[in-house]
């Protein structure tokens, strides 16, 4: 079991001292609604289903292979502030030369705790522990034999508290996450025989630790219409949230001699918010050749289970009350 780095230990200490606050079903914080973003996770716990999320891009291989990912993620609240999620991704890799590979990636699960919800300042903070379970996917599509444990901190902040002089900036919101990905074992020794000399050889396969971070900048037309000024736009515009997401991973430890670089993508796009589901579409722009080649695309259909099944699977397993809210916070 790896030791938590100092920032994570500090975060754990902070969690134990912050009072609990009421959480709303999917990500409402005061007047602000944070949509489920496609590439980085939103900062709330919720009863939601992303199905499917489809991305097509040219991956980092040389020469690049065409990669198709189709994934589903189910998120469930245990209490108002504590939730779990499980994600599965099917991958097809089609190189320019050679056979096509396909199969599932490793299963991923996340336990998340939303420890601060401040409606007045449209601020939400949460912490999570994610596990990618080794040996649950197919090696031919890159699923690793080892597990990866990632403690992650999330935040969301809406700018609804800006003054009247800049009221058209109020629909902006920022979300972010930073995590530390730790493999379950730091290295693997591979034994072999030198074909020229016949002597025994060994090689050490190091597994780097990564800082995984990213976020989104959003402009909410629903917020503009309901909280700033109703400009009489068509309903389609009033449901749009244009946004830019970005996600990166930087090797920070145990990467000696691996030649790893920071990789990631920047994703401009939009989310169309309906009453019980949302649709998202984004471009995938790699930040360097190690992140991919050319511009890919990602789309997602996302369901608000708390709205679709409000009395059954859309409720926390252990609700703190009968569903009637407490006013006045």
């Amino acid at each position: 079991m790896p030791r938590l780095p100092a920032p994570m230990a500090a975060l754990a200490a902070l969690i134990s001292f912050v009072p609990l606050s009421d959480a709303s079903a999917h990500c409402f914080v005061g007047s602000r609604f944070f949509p489920a973003t496609l590439n980085v996770d939103d900062p709330c716990v919720a009863d939601e289903l992303s199905l499917p999320t489809i991305s097509v891009f040219k991956n980092e291989d040389v020469p690049s292979a065409q990669q198709l990912d189709i994934s589903g993620e189910f998120s469930k609240r245990i209490t108002e502030n504590l939730g779990v999620s499980i994600e599965s991704t099917w991958t097809r890799i089609r190189p320019p030369i050679g056979p096509t590979a396909n199969g599932f990636q490793n299963l991923e699960s996340t336990l998340k705790y939303q420890f601060l919800t401040d409606p007045t300042h449209e601020l939400v903070l949460s912490a999570a522990l994610s596990v990618e379970w080794g040996n649950t996917g197919a090696a031919q599509v890159g699923a690793e034999s080892f597990s990866v444990i990632t403690p992650t901190f999330f935040f969301g902040k809406g700018f609804g508290d800006l003054p009247d002089t800049v009221r058209f900036l109020r629909p902006f919101a920022l979300t972010g996450q930073i995590g530390y990905a730790v493999p379950s074992s730091s290295s693997r020794t591979i034994f072999g025989v030198d074909p020229d000399t016949g002597e025994s050889t060994f090689d050490v396969d190091r597994r780097a630790r990564f800082l995984v971070y990213g976020g989104s900048l959003q402009y909410s037309f629903p917020y503009l219409k309901a909280n700033v000024v109703d400009l009489g736009y068509p309903d389609l515009i009033n449901r749009l949230i244009p946004l830019v997401e970005a996600q990166f991973q930087t090797p920070v430890a145990n990467d000696f001699g691996l030649g790893l670089k920071t990789t990631g993508t920047i994703n401009p796009g939009f989310i169309l918010v309906a009453d019980k589901f949302q649709i998202g579409l984004e471009a995938l722009i790699p930040i360097n050749r190690e992140s991919g080649s050319g511009v890919g695309v990602m789309g997602q259909l996302h369901f608000y289970l708390d709205d679709i099944f409000p009395t059954t699977i859309g409720r926390p397993l252990f609700a703190s009350n009968t569903g009637r809210p407490t006013f006045g916070n």
């Binding site: 219409k225 309901a226 909280n227 109703d230 589901f277 369901f303 679709i308 099944f309 409000p310």
Partner: peptide
């Protein structure tokens, strides 16, 4: 197989109440 059930459920269920419009108009 889950998708049709979800789409059917989404058509039948209630949702969060959102402000559609106001009088006086928002920001007016």
């Amino acid at each position: 197989t889950v998708l049709p059930a979800l789409l059917f459920g989404a058509a039948a269920a209630h949702a969060h109440a959102q402000l559609d419009h106001a009088s006086p108009r928002v920001g007016g």
